[in-house]
Nucleic acid binder design. Sequence first.
RNA 1: GCCGAAGUGGCGGAAUGGUAGACGCGCCGGUCUCAAAAACCGGUGGGGGUAACCCCGUGUCAGUUCGACUCUGACCUUCGGCACCA
Length: 834
Amino acid sequence: MATRQRRVELRYDPEAIDRKWQQRWADDGLHRVEDDDPRPKWYEMTMYPYPSGDLHIGHWYALALSDCHARFRRMQGYNVLHPIGFDAFGLPAENAAISRGIHPYTWTMDNVETMRGQLRSIGAIYDWDREIVCCLPEYYRWNQWFFLKFLEHGLAYRAKAPVVWCPSCQTVLANEQVVAGNCERCNTLITRRDLEQWFFRITDYADRLLDFSGLVDWPEKILTMQNNWIGRSEGVEISFDISEYGLEERVISTFTTRIDTIFGVTFLVLAPEHPLVDRLTTEEQRPQVDEYIAQARRTSEIDRLSTETEKTGVFTGAYAVNRLNGERVPIFIGDYVLMTYGTGAVMGVPAHDTRDFVFARKYRLPIRIVIAPITWDGSDLTEAYVDEGFMTNSGPYDGFTNEEGKVAIANDIEKRNWGRRAVSYRIRDWLISRQRYWGTPIPVVYCDQCGIVPIPEEDLPVLLPTDAEYIPTGGGSPLAANPEFLNTTCYRCNGPARRETDTMDTFFDSSWYMLRYISPNSVDAPFEPAAGKHWLPVDQYTGGAEHAVMHLLYSRFFIKGLYDMGIVDFEEPFLRLFNQGVILGEDHEKMSKSRGNVVNPDEVVTDLGADAVRCFLMFIGPWDQGGPWSEVGINGVARWLNRVWEILGRDPSDLDGPGTGAPSANGAGNKDSRETLRLLHQTIRKCYNDLDRFKFNTAIASLMELSNHLNKVWSDGSVDSDVWRECVEKFLLVLAPIAPHLSEEMWERTGRPYSIHQQSFPSWDDDLAAEDTVTLVVQVNGKVRDRLEVPADIEEQAAQELALASPRIRSYTEGKAVSKAIYVPGRLVNLVVR
RNA sequence: GCCGAAGUGGCGGAAUGGUAGACGCGCCGGUCUCAAAAACCGGUGGGGGUAACCCCGUGUCAGUUCGACUCUGACCUUCGGCACCA
């Protein structure tokens, strides 16, 4: 048992209050969401958790705070749908199965059951009737249905793609299972293997995915990351002649964004996986080439693309002809060229490309300058010159600026049919196939007569067999080892056929789950169109920034695909996006079992209540920044809630008693009452604006200031009881989305009608919130030299006169000329003196 | 390495071109207590000064500005992602 650090003596029993209200809200169906509610709709969705079996503090951070925002929207008058579900397919279930011998289904569903209970302790406004669990056939049959739609619309295709392979375990590995180039289980050196797999044509949508056209309100950084991930570049595909080898392919096609440097080409580099490598390699060079390819198969893409690691390559023994100048240049292979980008072949222009420069130096290839640096004296380069300039050594194009050259050369190449203008994207088509058991079966069969045959819609779902071997062994997908699943009859010709045994990437499930929450029980369609029309798209999506690129791009693509098929009538699934940060351990490190810094929220909730945990997570700092957990830090908010309980629970009529309160004849007339009212209205305004923009930390700080102030004016007996009553009521209403249990309990105890969560967020009065006086800062040459208390509406002239008249200021301006005076209304005067 | 962020007291953070350190933790002092804990009240960036006050201070270095935590450039450190963790 760890040393108990939570030492706050609460005046209330948080466990009893949490239990009481969670039960009451559930019994009353307070959070049930109806489609036909007359209020305007607000669909606020948070990324659904993976059912790991334990709701950790990071889940609380994501879920409790999004719940606060959803509750705030509800108090603003919206009918709020804030659903929850489980991202239930994936690798950890298989790992658990392997290490503990539990079936992935059992493991997952047990975890879901545990986590449902833990999730209830948050006190969120989930409508549990809308829960989704995507490993159940009721959900994944729609994965299959959507797959068939994409296939039907030509957006799915099969192609070979490499997978990471452990030659000892004879299984496909996830990148996560590779440790320093070795299999994490048996420590064998990994390699890569080509398998025929399913792809979705996300690249067809690249331009549309780049275009946000004001449709969405997302953080700028996420838009930038997506743009960079898609990585559009315009250039030219130019082919080099290899007809001398008498192959079927008479050219090698390369993609370049710098066609203006074509006369500087002194070599070509092919990706080691390029299909021509085998045929072009000379017998003499073959041993080195084969060895190099084997090496490349073990190297990760990050290492291959690193600008830090040395650029290597091997000569194939073959040459290609640059048709613009007739030169014959050597063909290399090099692992810094990827088969998945452009054409898998690049032209080497060492003088004007950094990587090519290093490569040419290493292999002693000529470096020919074709774009003259501005101050070039004709000497050799010490590094690649990648900037603009005039063309030289470029035949008919000499003297052009390189920008003019780009256009002229592209035109000439197109005229002669040596190539064409082209756009290349860094993004690759979405590889859907997984050689794993715990996923959605891909609904096609392979028939010797008919080829690929999609399974008809009416025969869905293709059930994942529960009695199958789920531990991957002996080659492909585990399902391939299950003859009852594998062998079937063709849906077209009734002849013998084999089922597809790969399952789907789990990003497939999460690409469309926002649709399923709308009609989670629909059996005829993934969602009811009428309900979809009402709720979709999602107004606010929240979740970790780790999903900035992949999940969010896949989902955007998926929805655009459905839009084109007429299945949905909107193009962007998530109108607004907010990414929360990460909760770290007390040691400021990422939480992990091996570090022993994992926080169990259940214990804290029992001790201090759900609201204390919610408040602490909100108070820790800005939501998008995350922050470290602190066992002593949470005492602070617990103490505050405890004080709020005590202060707001006081009997306001005590203020009317003799010797206290001293209410003035006109109610809120006395000075402290006016101050109190002002602070109340300022606090409501601040909390409204802060909660609106997820700035929970400063909202709570301002409520703390208000409670401190209330305590002070109470002990001074200087506030009117009516003002006090107004403060209590509005304080509780502002607190309601933040601390739903405590505020409900106090709402009841102060004699107010159930439920606080059906009330509106309080409004404020700007006039009441306005200050009479402000502190005018007086600077001399930008340094603060005095502060003056002045009327809030002071004019520039008067402010300057007051500033100049201040004795302190005079000691700085004495005998000097004031050359300039800057006035910021109601804030500052800056006198510039020489 | 590439792409994207972040760096402010002893700690979490506030202030997004105008009073640096709101609010909280911790610490120090006090009240209560036989004592401690809890609770409550007060103080708390560093340096100098009896004091009034003064100087320094937002990762480092340069720049823009009357004025920079805030904008620009370079660098350092940490974090997220890099296509089979989700």
